[in-house]
Amino acid sequence: MVAEKQSKFKWGMAIDIDKCTGCQACVLACQAENNIPINTEDNFKDARGIEWIRVERYWEGEFPDVKAKFIPILCMHCDNAPCEPVCPVYASYHTVEGLNVQVYNRCVGTRYCANGCPYLVRFFNYWEPEWPESLQNQLNPDVTVRSRGIMEKCTMCIQRIRRGTRKAKRDNNEVMDGDISPACVQACPTEAMVFGNQKDPNSKINKMKNDKRSYTLLDHLKTNSNVWYLAKIDEDMDSHHEGGSH
């Protein structure tokens, strides 16, 4: 706890649902950045696809008055994460910078963390991962390829965070807001997703999380999530229904 207080960073993300168009660019960027095996149709049919971030789509109303709502769901990096205490080998742990990460080498694959996670953002490698020949050279050298039998999950692109903080240290600079962005944030065409340091009082994410539209998912479980959502502005809806109307 002391180390967490002394740390200069506490990473978090805010996602403005009102800006999300459901284009799936974040999903694609994440697959490419983090060496996630190709999700074929069969993978999805088996319910064994691996998507560190997914865009959930909700239809509302009947045709022709139909509306689609999108919500990108990734690991919430909870401060009080249900996946962490259940792991018998400490493979699922919390960094001092507020990230919930998976230590692949230590994981024995009990899948208990996945049962504990209410957001369903932890994924198990049922098979040894494979890529087609044409994509062999596409793999990101900064990210471990996970072998079969272990869990994997969103790391908020920890390789990018490390690169950013190291660069700032080397140049004797402070890490500025917007210097570091995970692949999903970088790829978002409408800038619906914002990544930043919650300990920086002027950061954009701090402004967003204090917005009156902001909420966290499954708040009643008191997981103290570090990903905030800004509710969709829907003129047809009553004003008091705003917020949490996902």
Partner: peptide
């Protein structure tokens, strides 16, 4: 049922290997 049963020693044997990590006593497993 574990994904990597050959690494089960990490879990079952409460011995401080060179890694300096003990099994997690908070886990029901």
């Amino acid at each position: 049922h574990a994904g990597r049963p050959w690494r089960i020693a990490y879990w079952l044997i409460p011995y401080d290997w060179a890694r300096g990590i003990w099994p997690n006593v908070r886990s029901p497993l």
